[in-house]
C-alpha cells in the first residue's frame, strides 16, 4: 500500500479511531466490573503533589476542604459518602466544577488544569492494602 495514497491514511485514521473506541469500551467495562471494596480512595493532587487521600466510604457526612496552589488559585473539594467533586474553583473555565461528582464508576479523573489540581477516585484494593493503622 502506498503511503501517499488516500486509502493508506483512511486506514490509519480509522484504526486510531477504532482503538480509541475499544479503549473507551474496555475502560468503561473495567470501571464498572470492579467489586465494591471496603476502601474507595479519593486522591487530590495539587501542583504534582498528593495533598489529600480520603477514604470515601468512611466519610459519613459531606465536608469541604479548600486547596490553594502555588499560583494563588484555589479549588474547594467536597467529599461525600462514596463520591467527591470540585464544589467551586477560581479557574476561568470552571470545567472542574461542571465535571460534577466522581465515584467508583466515573471514567475520568476530575482535572482542573489551570490550577494543576487533579481528583482521582480509585478502589482501595488497587493500592494493595490489607488494613490501615490509625
Amino acid at each position: 500500500m502506498n503511503i501517499k495514497s488516500n486509502k493508506f491514511w483512511v486506514i490509519v485514521i480509522a484504526a486510531v479511531l477504532a482503538l480509541c473506541l475499544v479503549a473507551v469500551g474496555i475502560w468503561t467495562w473495567w470501571r464498572n466490573s470492579q467489586p465494591e471494596e471496603e476502601g474507595l480512595i479519593a486522591v487530590v493532587r495539587l501542583d504534582g503533589r498528593i495533598v489529600a487521600a480520603v477514604d470515601l466510604n468512611k466519610v459519613t457526612e459531606n465536608y469541604t476542604q479548600t486547596f490553594s496552589g502555588e499560583s494563588g488559585n484555589s479549588n474547594t473539594v467536597e467529599f461525600a459518602p462514596g463520591q467527591v467533586r470540585v464544589h467551586d474553583a477560581t479557574c476561568p473555565d470552571q470545567i472542574c466544577v461542571s465535571q460534577g461528582w466522581a465515584d467508583r464508576t466515573t471514567l475520568l479523573p476530575i482535572a482542573c488544569l489551570p490550577n494543576s489540581l487533579i481528583v482521582e477516585v480509585a478502589a482501595a484494593q488497587d493500592l494493595g492494602l490489607d488494613s490501615i493503622s490509625r
Binding site: 476502601g39 489529600a52 487521600a53 480520603v54 477514604d55 466519610v59 493500592l127 492494602l129 488494613s131 490509625r134
Partner: peptide, 29 residues
C-alpha cells in the same frame, strides 16, 4: 507480608501516607 497503611495525620478520614509490610506483628498508631 501484610501491607498496612499508616494514617496520614493531616487527614481525618482514612487517608494514609505510606505502607508498612509486617508479618505476625502488631501495629498501633
Amino acid at each position: 507480608p501484610w501491607r498496612i497503611g499508616v494514617q496520614d495525620p493531616q487527614q481525618t478520614t482514612g487517608g494514609y501516607l505510606g505502607v508498612l509490610e509486617i508479618r505476625d506483628q502488631a501495629m498501633v498508631t
